[in-house]
Nucleic acid binder design. Structure first.
Lengths: 341, 341
DNA sequence: GTTAGCACTCCCGACAAACGAGTGCTAAAC
DNA sequence: GTTTAGCACTCGTTTGTCGGGAGTGCTAAC
């Protein structure tokens, strides 16, 4: 257990390091006006904190740098959320006030504003649609062989897929099929669609639709749970502003990872409620060993539907990031829920 | 006008520099077995070529490096297209052989394969849709205030937009409207839609639809020419493999530019038919002064609908890139045309 | 016209010295 | 017992010097 003074000093060191990016020496700390001890005292405490694993020394005659354990303690026990400037609050609120044509636009703006306000990289996982309910389904033939299947959800999201039509199918048959689907499947959550297809639609189809086997098969393909969630990445290059990433090799590893959608999704796939912080080596990806990731979920009608996250160096302004993320996720949840519930 | 020998030497120097990334000395050239002159002779020719502006010298006792003018001459007069390996041809062909659900998927794969085969950054401007013809239009009400308008083109592309419904509109009215639209606008190219709306639809609507003014206004908004073309970027980080971009500052400028869609579009906005090459300082953007961009258009039924491009260092393997790009753009055009004409 | 030879330029890496930020320890002060 | 002043020591960084080497331009001979 750390003494009050140790906490104070640890806090001072990390604060300092976060803003300077340089190892912090005892003198620097003793000169701070919230600290009333000489550098020698600080030195002793620092040696203790190092022994306990909260600090590290790059080399003998250098100052101290927080370890992962040190940051962890800082995040869990020392920081208090920073309050945002009126300017920043306004910028964020504006995102939700804008007129929207697509949900995606809001999510995209969210990512942009996050990156802009924090000066770190923002990653947003677009709203999960499994829970969305079917509002309408349409099949539009393009020619003899192909058609587009279109699904509209109650949130106004539109998914579409190209289909191969069974040979020699009559347009009237497609119309019949669409009618059956619309009468049976409205308000069904997307994840149930395939199941319902067999339970309820198959029988109906056999009775009324020609070539029902081929049509069924075609439908099955098109109702696949939507592959690939949408991921929005903004400000990926912000990491290069950080002095510890002046090295192309390091930056390359990170940016290469950010280029891959599946890796981004993995990055945001964090269990737990509320704000989650993963610091440095707590990440299992090698490229992320010197980065921290702060995430939280956003909700639609009480259910988590997506994740917003900030990626930055371990030496991140945690207080600020947590405040921004929290405020924004709440706003987003509220907006979505108001709009679509 | 360059002598035959000067061309030979210039070609040798650029070839060498492209592969070594180091200033090329006279000895290196004289040792090549397609060159039968001593290093002293080469030195004389090099001095001449420098005076003519085709070469540059980083400092007195260094070898020579091609200037923008040098590369330009090389691209225009010296290279012959490189033929691709069977492996590479196969990789490219596979993209077009895959089953497709959306055009976008093909475009995306195109970008991926381009970047993969060339080891440079690939940028693809997704197919322009103004020329696409309307296949169907739908309006799906979500609740009392909102609806989604959906437009399907003859190429199977689906666009959608959220609409605010006029207050107290009756669902039947919307249906009437959709019927009018579908009967009048099928097979009209997208860019004509707004114009037709006023010429033909407005009158019809006034006769049959209540609250026609509000509805007209709403429609007008939704038929806006689709803002924001789709841009696909792949392998942006490849630039960091180049020895001349070991410097974070340089890379940052480039990657920041690549993060902005409008800049990407500007980058590919090159007049002219066939393969176009812009070398180093020929680019008007500062961040691109040390890069080259090779572009070409792809076609649907004889009309250019999009652009594919490769971005790399000025020291780029032009021969190879041009071959790949040409082969791929032809394949893409052929595939699109076969599929949708 | 071509080439061997040579003096010259300039970058680069190695090595040494000076510097300074910061430490750990000791002993005195509180 | 805790705090602090003082001091020797460590080690990375900066600066300067020096030799080696790659490459050039020029001259004179072939």
């Amino acid at each position: 257990m750390l003494s009050e003074r140790q906490r104070l000093i640890l806090n001072a060191i990390i604060d300092n390091y976060i803003h300077s990016a340089e190892p912090v020496g005892s003198r620097t700390i003793s000169k701070r006006n919230d600290i009333g001890f000489s550098s020698a005292t600080i030195r002793n405490e620092m040696a203790d904190l190092e022994e306990l694993g909260y600090l590290e020394q790059p080399h003998t005659s250098a100052g101290r740098v927080p370890s992962t354990k040190g940051y962890r303690f800082y995040v869990d026990n020392l920081i208090r959320p920073e309050h945002l400037s009126e300017q920043e609050l306004n910028n964020i609120r504006n995102v939700f006030a804008e007129r929207i044509n697509h949900i995606e636009q809001v999510i995209e703006s969210t990512a942009s504003i996050l990156s802009q306000v924090t000066n770190y990289t923002a990653i947003v996982l677009g709203p999960e649609i499994f829970e969305h309910r079917l509002k309408a389904i349409q099949i539009v033939p393009l020619n003899e062989q192909q058609a587009v299947a279109i699904i509209v959800t109650h949130t106004g999201r539109v998914e579409n897929k190209l289909l191969d039509l069974p040979k020699g199918i009559h347009p009237g048959e497609i119309e019949k099929l669409v009618n059956i689907l619309n009468s049976k499947l409205i308000d069904v959550p997307l994840w149930q669609l395939r199941q319902r297809l067999y339970q309820e639609i198959a029988g109906e189809m056999r009775r009324h639709v020609e070539q029902y086997e081929e049509m069924l098969h075609m439908l099955e393909r098109s109702l696949n749970p939507e592959e690939g969630e949408r991921v929005f990445l903004r400000g990926a290059t912000k990491i290069m502003n950080q002095p510890e990433f002046r090295d192309v090799e390091k930056v390359k590893d990170i940016l290469e990872l950010l280029e891959q959608n599946d890796q981004l999704i993995r990055l945001l796939d964090v269990p737990g409620e509320g704000i989650q912080v993963r610091i440095g080596q707590e990440n299992d990806m090698d490229a992320m060993k010197e980065c921290s990731i702060v995430t939280t979920s956003y909700y639609l009608g009480g259910k988590p539907v997506g994740v917003v996250g900030i990626l930055g160096p371990t030496r991140m302004e945690y207080g600020k990031v947590i405040s921004v993320l929290d405020y924004l996720a709440r706003g987003l949840s509220q907006m979505l829920t108001k709009q679509f519930e």
